[in-house]
Design a protein around this nucleic acid. Structure first.
Lengths: 248, 248
DNA sequence: TTCGGGCTTTGATGCAGATCAAGTGCGGCT
DNA sequence: AGCCGCACTTGATCTGCATCAAAGCCCGAA
């Protein structure tokens, strides 16, 4: 564990797994080496809170490995997940002093951090970083708006199908495992976390997963591990069959 | 009408109403005059569609006056509004070829447009524009996430109260009319548009507005014109009484 | 091996908001 | 004035999901 940690402290940006997707994607060798000088790693255990709403944020960071969530809470405890952070996703906002959301590690998480001030300075001098960050933010905005459609207008069944489809798509594009026929998906979330993401209760999540299983849309290999025999069928169930398959 | 149009064609960026809030906010005189050379105005009547999903987008633009909406639709016709565009808000995405949403003029709208290619070129050479666009996009992302909480977890009554509070706040910051006691708000939307924004039906919107009136939270001066005797009370009804008043 | 605690499933019941169906009020047009 | 059309209101009923409650399952600790 400490061993791992030490190893990772010496990790070279050049062969980082998220080198070509993270905020540094567009940097050239020179820019990368300057980033390398201000970066440091932090790791978090599954379940740990990375940032609390309102906390002073003295750093920004990229998720290197693992999965984290962004959540908002009403005073009476109602929770809504507003983002799912996968490897290469960016946390924190340059130019903002305090955190706007709770950030929680769902699995063990490794983050590549930059102290905020030096990062902001570097961003001002390095258009490649600002450009990439803009692009990533626009993508997140699109994702948030797609989620608004889901939250506002989809049925419980469509919500579950959409979630499975989105997770399948994301880790297909991440891992490139593209079995033509049936396709295995690990749900990195508990039923309760899915409920918080979808604006449902955990009971409804469970019931709808059972229903999709009963109807042959998915199969359960374990509680958290699903296989999808026919992805197009899943997309139909999700309501928005915009595109008929996984992106390349 | 044509008269107005002509007048506006000669409008000088220097005394534009959105000069200090739009994507050009940070530009200096020199940059502004270069922008001025590539800009042109287009106006749209209330109800007109500005852009259809999937349309080829050959321009980006700022809303100068009026209100427009961003909506997404499922094939069976369920609609969800995913953004409300007020003066100074930006439409279109540099680096994307086709529109991701329908954009519709709710009132008469005047837009300050830039052909996409020249704008992109200029953005690459003008960090002030890219910086401002990043900042605006991050703000929109925060707004979208706040909306996700509303859509996923709030009751119909809380949704209505939140909508009124947000509109009140926005046009207070725009118009600077800050009557201390009771506060007048014009709803620029029909009941159906509110429903599409809040993920409700128009009947539920109507009923909840009546209920808030019955309970003395709001008063109706006309169908579309509301007054709020006690803003803090409204914020309580909205559920998230994060901050107790209008921002300065 | 048994026990305890998470996580999950399933059942019974209740209710907020959707759906279906009349109205009402108002501004514009003839 | 009288009529039309549209946005809105209100009522009656239905239903999808929440809520309340009780088991089942799996795994790690004693």
């Amino acid at each position: 564990m400490l061993q791992d940690h030490q190893t990772l402290l010496h990790h070279d940006c050049g062969d980082c797994a998220i080198r070509h997707r993270a905020v540094c994607a567009r940097c050239d060798a020179d820019e990368l080496s300057r980033l390398e000088q201000i970066k440091y790693y932090r790791s978090f255990q599954a379940g740990q809170t990375i940032v609390w709403v309102g906390d002073r944020m003295d750093f920004v960071a990229s998720v290197v490995t693992g999965i984290a969530t962004l959540t908002q809470t009403l005073e009476d405890g109602r929770r809504q997940m507003v983002g799912l952070l996968l490897p290469s996703d960016f946390v924190g906002r340059p130019g903002r002093a305090t955190a706007a959301y709770d950030v929680t590690a769902t699995t063990d998480v490794l983050m590549c951090c930059f102290r905020k001030r030096p990062f902001e300075d570097m961003m001002a001098r390095t258009p490649h970083i600002a450009q990439r960050l803009l692009e990533m933010t626009l993508d997140e905005l699109d994702a948030a708006r797609e989620w608004m459609l889901l939250l506002g207008r989809k049925t419980a069944r469509e919500k579950i199908a959409s979630l499975i489809a989105i997770i399948a798509r994301r880790d297909a594009s991440l891992n490139l495992r593209r079995a033509a026929g049936t396709l295995a998906v690990d749900l990195p979330l508990t039923r309760e976390e899915m409920a918080d993401y979808l604006g449902l209760t955990l009971e409804t999540v469970s019931r709808q997963i059972s229903a999709l299983k009963r109807d042959g849309v998915i199969r359960l290999d374990g509680k958290r591990s699903i296989s999808v025999p026919d992805f197009d069928r899943l997309l139909e169930e999700a309501g928005d069959d915009a595109d008929g398959g996984l992106p390349v």
